[in-house]
């Protein structure tokens, strides 16, 4: 499976990663070689195999519906890049 330049740009966009123009070919090469390697999976017929999402064959445990968390906004926002009036600021969102 070989990825071309457009593929890399598209994936990088989907993952919201800025990639230098000049490093795109290197990403294309590296990602293609990883995908080639991964393609060995195709050798096995998995038709009748149930997928395994998790190592534990267990069910989800449930939490009682109770308020247990105190929120320390000051501490949480001390590490935020930009806040004002208790809000996290981002460049204007256009809907």
């Amino acid at each position: 499976m070989s990825l071309n330049r457009e593929d890399v740009v598209k994936i990088a966009h989907l993952a919201r990663l800025a990639i230098d123009e000049q490093s795109v070919p290197e990403y294309a090469r590296n990602l293609s070689s990883i995908l080639d390697f991964v393609a060995t999976m195709e050798q096995v017929d998995t038709h009748a195999i149930a997928p395994m999402a998790h190592p534990l064959d267990l069910a989800q445990r449930l939490r009682a519906d109770a308020v247990t968390e105190e929120v320390d906004r000051e501490t949480c926002q001390a590490i935020a890049p930009q806040v004002e009036a208790g809000l996290y600021l981002v460049p204007k969102v256009i809907e």
């Binding site: 939490r63 109770a66 308020v67 247990t68 968390e69 105190e70 929120v71 906004r73 949480c76 926002q77 009036a85 208790g86 809000l87 996290y88």
Partner: peptide, 19 residues
């Protein structure tokens, strides 16, 4: 998925816990 309160109308981000 967290133990933070769902009450409406609190000050911004005072009911958003770590989770």
């Amino acid at each position: 998925f967290s133990g933070a309160s769902t009450a409406y109308g609190a000050e911004p981000n005072t009911q958003a816990c770590l989770v």
